[in-house]
Write a protein that binds this DNA or RNA. Structure first.
Lengths: 233, 233
DNA sequence: AGAATTATTGACATCATGTCAATAGACCGT
DNA sequence: ACGGTCTATTGACATGATGTCAATAATTCT
């Protein structure tokens, strides 16, 4: 439109010149199995996206880091966005080990154990997860869906640990409250690990106290007269 | 480089052809004062950024919406990013009216009033503010700074309302806890207004209860033995 | 070995962004 | 009114990023 360059449209495609010269030393092409290559590119992308924000990482950068032609990135992941979403999806779930192994003690004890486990996990696997809920660039529907989905997993496990699992009634609302709490947990962890304004003990107190309060007060408060309709028994 | 179009490079700059033809009806150029024009462009950008995510809004779109050449956007805001940051900065602060007019009753009462005011404000000024903390695109240092700064404002006012203002000691840590709480508040409001999973009453209960718990339990818990050093009295 | 398969490449075409000289509105003094 | 000055505004670059696709070369199979 703007530039009328158009050129020989009938010619199929001019053959790549390949001209520059020989490539330094290494073997010129390393041919891998699709799975391997995909994973390799993915790893590089993960590293780069953790380093600087989305739009400052070019597909060229990723390809270069993987030692690969840029086109290959698109070949495996469609587009940069798709690749990014996969990276996020992987990093947005907190590892799901050892939730079944919770004590059967009082609510307070179970909460303490959960919080301890949560903080332990974070202390090791560290920052990537924390960064997610933070900066609010353009809220993206797909991205948000991924994040919400991951949050739902955590919430489900949290409810199980709290013994709030199978109550059909206010289920959806309890879930919502746990989701809200999850934001608090994330934010608290951020103050601890990223900004370093709170000690671990303080965060622990904050999180467990708050969770106890919610489970004890807010959750029961919605069971008697829950929805807009559906009167009390 | 790629396309050898180049053309007469010695000529200073080929004069704009201006060719197409006369422009429909309106006056061709509307010359405004810089302030007016700036504001107008800003308004259009705000509208568009509220509608779709950052990178799906092109500078061309903004310019078109404002009925202006794309170059003018850059002239006034430097680059698209700068414009976006300004939009965010404006929308990231919750209006600061009427915090001074808080009752002097019990803590519980003051909290209820604060939460009520908060929810009222949100109910009117609505969604833009809520969307901010949500999607986590590339966490961006500048953007994050703006968000944190705005959050600090809210936190400051919140502390004032809670009567936690001038305690020199754990000040920074109290602030951190309030910041954490602010995330909970935002998240709760989101469940109410955006996802519609909780009623206003439920959110109110959740927020006020949690805040009460924090102010009553978590905050005092850090004053006796606050930092890593500084032993108990 | 040679044929067949397919992972990989590199060159487009398109689009977005930022820059800047040139242009044309508006305002002024005369 | 009129010409001159100021500057808001434009449009054409230059650059870089993205996605597509036929051509190429590294494997595997026979």
């Amino acid at each position: 439109m703007t530039s009328t360059k158009a050129a020989t449209d009938t010619s199929p495609r001019s053959a790549p010149k390949e001209g520059s010269g020989v490539v330094p030393a290494e073997q010129r092409r390393q041919r891998l199995s699709p799975d391997e290559r995909r994973e390799q590119i993915f790893a590089c992308a993960q590293k780069l996206f953790a380093l600087r924000p989305y739009e400052e990482v070019s597909a060229t950068d990723i390809a270069a880091a993987a030692g690969v032609a840029r086109g290959l990135v698109n070949h495996y992941f469609g587009n940069k966005r798709g690749l990014y979403l996969e990276v996020v999806r992987l990093n947005s779930t907190v590892s799901e080990v050892a939730v079944a192994t919770l004590p059967d003690g009082t609510l307070q004890e179970r909460i303490d154990a959960s919080v301890t486990w949560f903080l332990d996990t974070l202390e090791h696997t560290g920052g990537t997860w924390l960064a997610l809920g933070s900066g609010g660039m353009g809220r993206d529907p797909d991205l948000e869906r991924i994040l919400v989905e991951a949050e739902n997993d955590s919430v489900e496990r949290l409810m199980e640990a709290m013994g709030l699992a199978g109550r059909g009634e206010g289920q959806e609302q309890v879930r919502a409250m746990m989701r809200v709490y999850a934001q608090l947990a994330r934010s608290g962890a951020r103050e601890w690990l990223l900004r370093k304004t709170l000690s671990r003990r303080q965060v622990h107190t904050l999180l467990s106290g708050t969770l106890l309060g919610i489970v004890r007060d807010a959750v029961p408060a919605l069971t008697p007269a829950t929805g807009p309709h559906r009167g009390p028994a």
